[in-house]
Design a protein around this nucleic acid. Structure first.
Lengths: 245, 245
DNA sequence: CGCGTTCCTGTGAATTTCCTGAGAAAGGGC
DNA sequence: GCCCTTTCTCAGGAAATTCACAGGAACGCG
């Protein structure tokens, strides 16, 4: 088994060259599973815990580089877990999972230390992107990877959310942005509509699968318009992005 | 390559090139947590103590470059702690945390020696800025940072609180100033409303998240009025500031 | 060449997100 | 204590975004 990620992109690695370690703390087994699989697929090492006690134990043994923490847990409330995690892992960034309306009720100071949060229901693309951002900025990983994705003359900046083709700025909506980011993080690789739906849309999306077609169509209009096309259809298989000739 | 903080800003560093050390003395664990997280994220090394005895011990071992001291502590009152800290660390600047209604003249006496204070409830932006100012002026750290933030033709002086666009002075209220400072310390970077709220508003703020929208609106009126806009909305993501073209 | 399948995209409606005016409440300076 | 400034809530309205639906185009296969 090689250390290159399944998707073949440049990975974030720890200073000693080993894989980045992520601890997932969530009591919903299904969610925990979903996250673990997605993160392993990123090439990261994952451990998960279903309650606060397990989380603290895992933190001590596993010494993760980042934590994903659902702030509503059964035995302790998430904030208590956070406190105990912090004692074990003072400098480790935390990505919080929270219900959408909880944000309005305000969880003061959660993101204060450079941490971040994602509201449920989330898309995997969002979680992975946020987590990569956290790790990148935490300095725990060696690779100060750029926040800039480049495919041919197309660029996408994950920090500023700026997208340009051939130097020209292109305005994308939030969903278009996430779709393009997913494509660009997997250049020259066919992604099926099911994969895209699983990754870019939130896990509870119940709509028609052809939203993917629709959004591919939107992207083409904005990105390929006139120019040599970069987004290609593989009939019966999916879509891929690659530099135009 | 210059050393940069996690957020990519220039850091304050000590003469030997190591990170600045800050001691946080506060008995409220939650506050202590919040501060530690924020300061670590600034790239500083943090130790915290929950009482006077611990503070003195930490001072002796840790030799901090600055101290944040809550002047109401359980075992000794803050003034006694201060005295003993001063014996350990004669020249170290202290940032006091105090209740708003604390006796004014007493504070005035305390801060006479170049120290500073912040009233509770505070915003992290304010604490970090004050602390940076203290450290910068104390000479303990190599001054590698100006107090002037510049983005395009917009400037903000953290010392004098002067803000100018294209040379013209602009009057901002306290909140507007802190918001703008946060944006300008993270140029070209999308900041979510939650992040902004966590950082610019005080930790006990319980209000509506749309104050952020409101203050962005105020800032635009004062800063972007007529001119090419520098504050941009990323719908569904947040706001960012960048030089106009 | 004809046919079924797959994909593309215009239209429009529901929803979400953002902006901003008006005014109440709180705070600061004198 | 009084006046002026600042902060913040509330709510209406504007605008952008998401998505379903459906007709038509393109494709691949026999």
């Amino acid at each position: 088994m090689t250390t290159t990620s399944p998707q073949g992109r440049t990975e974030l690695l720890r200073p000693d060259g080993t894989a980045v370690r992520v601890l997932v703390v969530d009591d919903e087994a299904a969610l925990s599973e979903l996250l673990s699989m997605a993160l392993r697929y990123e090439g990261w090492e994952v451990r998960s815990a279903g309650d606060g006690a397990g989380a603290v134990r895992a933190a001590r043994e596993f010494r993760p580089d980042a934590v994903i923490l659902d702030i509503m847990l059964p035995d302790m409330d998430g904030l208590a877990v956070l406190g105990r995690l912090r004692r074990e892992l003072p400098d480790v960034p935390v990505l919080f999972l929270t219900a959408k309306d909880a944000v309005e009720d305000r969880i003061a100071g959660l993101t204060a230390g450079g941490d971040d949060y994602v509201t449920k229901p989330f898309s995997l693309e969002e979680v992975v992107a946020r987590l990569r951002g956290l790790i990148r900025r935490s300095g725990s990983a060696t690779v100060r990877s750029e926040s800039l994705l480049v495919v041919g003359d197309l660029t996408l900046d994950e920090d500023s959310h700026d997208v340009t083709r051939d130097g020209v700025n292109i305005h994308l909506t939030a969903t278009e942005f996430e779709l393009l980011r997913y494509l660009m993080r997997n250049p020259r690789r066919v992604l099926s509509k099911a994969q895209i739906l699983d990754r870019v849309w939130s896990y509870d999306f119940g709509g028609q699968a052809n939203v993917v077609e629709l959004y591919i169509s939107y992207l083409r209009r904005k990105i390929d318009a006139g120019r040599s096309p970069m987004i290609h259809t593989r009939r019966g298989a999916g879509y891929l992005i690659k530099p135009g000739e």
